[in-house]
Design a protein around this nucleic acid. Structure first.
Lengths: 343, 343
DNA sequence: CTGTTAGCGCTTTCAG
DNA sequence: CTGAAAGCGCTAACAG
């Protein structure tokens, strides 16, 4: 059996109250001598408080949950790393929950975590959530009075903090970079049109085009699925449109395009410039390191925990929306547009 | 305030015992009618048991911990995925702990998880653990009477289950494959020599050489660090030794070698064959998809949870050591040795 | 079949 | 300064 506070009481002759007091630093008026005997006993008997019991009475467990779709996705694993590192600093523990983008799992994890007494939840809504489903999740949080911060996706209606990245800016930066390199026929391989982040990047793309007074042409837009395969078919399509540069809305589809062009013997960046989005660790390892838009995922994880901490401490109120600016990482996959090419 | 079992008691008029009984399916002798009223009330008042309280008395929390060095490493994130998926199936929750390979964190996480009442721990010992430190961890588990299963690394002395992969076999298979393709001068880029898995792969490499009666030559061995950079310098070195094939002990160093050869204009696999180890998702996305040794990481995660479940249920006893066989994934980075080349 | 009661291990008034 | 006692929400003998 583990040593309990009672054991310490018996051993030292003091009452459990006194023990508890000194262990929780509420021992203003307890003489150093008794403090010391107690601390010694704690050491000697190797006493460690049972956190379940503590949690039961304090209604605080120093534990939070992280709900994401899939840790094996590099985006999320980096996020999780940031989250866990920050938790460790705070002396917290982290529950990891993968929903695989199933909304019903969002719901069941939220409830399960609440039942286990977490102090708060970091919530990356599942992708199959339409507005109605999203509100369902939010309502559940509210019903449970569970502090939470939304990551990567945000809902106006939610009374919570959030940390997101400005994808409009990201899309804008990537496109502008291409434009600055003289490209005008810039194809893009988007993500699924339902996804807000894809729409945002698209908005950024258009904004840059506008700013440079390059007419938007919808035949230069290919709707991909954020995966390699659709990146490859996207490249096939755009090549036929005779683009000089491709902006893939995530690195995975950029890889697909990259490989396809390689197969076809099309040189990057000499013949076609390519730019990605995400900055997966792999992108810099390619033969032609990929120029891409970096999302500060790890930092977002850290910040999310801090927001949650604020939320937990202050009993709501914070409700801040922290926006991270993505940053363009210049590598080798973009070159000036060849003058030789017509138009 | 959350509804408690007492609320249900008050609401239905039955005692808390009765409620508890039906909720825990120990209601053999309780008439369906009362069962139904209770279940209805539970539904209506939206009652969810407080798991902290349950855990306190039952000494079971349906929660386990996973201690690894770093989730942002693809190996571990895939492992974690397998673990979490299996946990979900069992209705368990998962604590995620990153040690960054610091042994003291192994210790503090083990204790912290125990304090929070986990039923067991999946333990991937930190890399800076020598035998003595490793035993320290094991002893702690034993002192705490905490069920655990070791993953990826195993210690004879430990009375626990473990799931590992047979790296000797992996190294053997990779080397044999190269030999079968007519290569005799096979260079290898190992991992740090302190690491057991690297030694094992090396043993497999030698074993295959022996079997094919190809003399081992130590100048064909380059000690790398399991990263891209050392892979590149390893390639530089081995190229000077005039090898016809390179076996990199992990995919990261294989990428390093791959890129370096690309830079030098050396064609893979025409001029040099290359084989990796790990089968990171990226390996198949390369221009020349990398032939590599696949470790069934996800499945290991799943199996580890099952082992732990057995351990937890049967109050020790199992103590099985499950060995996974790595499998060679044939892709495009290995070719028959050119006859033209001398020797 | 159902209720009473005693904990699980800890914190926290409230007395003294 | 320290201790007794109540209670967090639940389970599990033990009665009846």
């Amino acid at each position: 059996m583990r040593t309990t506070i009672k054991d310490i009481a018996n051993y030292t002759g003091f009452s459990v109250t006194t023990i508890s007091l000194v262990l929780n630093n509420k021992a203003n008026k307890i003489p150093k001598s008794t403090k010391d005997t107690i601390l010694e006993a704690v050491e000697k008997l190797n006493y460690h408080p049972n956190r379940l019991a503590v949690g039961l009475v304090k209604k605080r467990t120093d534990t939070i949950g992280l709900i994401i779709s899939d840790v094996s996705n590099v985006f999320f694993s980096n996020l999780a790393k940031g989250v866990e590192d920050e938790c460790r600093k705070k002396g917290w523990n982290l529950f990891l929950c993968n929903t695989n983008d199933k909304h019903t799992r969002d719901l069941s994890y939220i409830q399960a975590l609440a039942d286990k007494g977490v102090d708060g939840i970091l919530f990356c809504m599942s992708l199959d959530s339409d507005k109605k489903k999203a509100m369902e999740s939010i309502k559940l949080f509210e019903k449970l009075k569970m502090p939470f911060v939304m990551i990567d996706r945000f809902l106006e209606e939610a009374t919570c903090s959030s940390v997101v990245v400005d994808h409009v800016q990201g899309g804008y930066a990537a496109t502008k970079y291409l434009l600055d390199h003289g490209h005008k026929k810039i194809g893009c391989i988007t993500g699924p049109r339902e996804l807000e982040d894809s729409c945002d990047r698209f908005a950024g793309y258009k904004k840059a085009l506008d700013e440079y007074e390059v007419a938007f042409r919808k035949e230069l837009v290919y709707e991909g699925k954020y995966d390699c395969e659709s990146g490859a078919t996207g490249a096939d399509y755009l090549l036929k449109q005779d683009v000089t540069a491709i902006f893939a809305f995530n690195d995975m589809s950029a890889y697909g395009a990259y490989n396809r062009m390689n197969q076809k013997g099309i040189k990057i960046p000499e013949e076609i410039s390519l730019i990605g989005y995400d900055d997966i660790f792999f992108s810099e390892l390619l033969d032609v390191p990929l120029t891409t838009v970096h999302q500060p995922v790890y930092d977002m994880g850290v910040e999310a925990v801090r927001q949650l901490a604020a939320e937990v401490e202050s009993e709501r109120g914070s409700r801040k929306c922290i926006t991270f600016q993505p940053v363009l990482i210049e590598r080798a996959s973009v070159a000036d547009k060849k003058r030789s090419k017509i138009k």
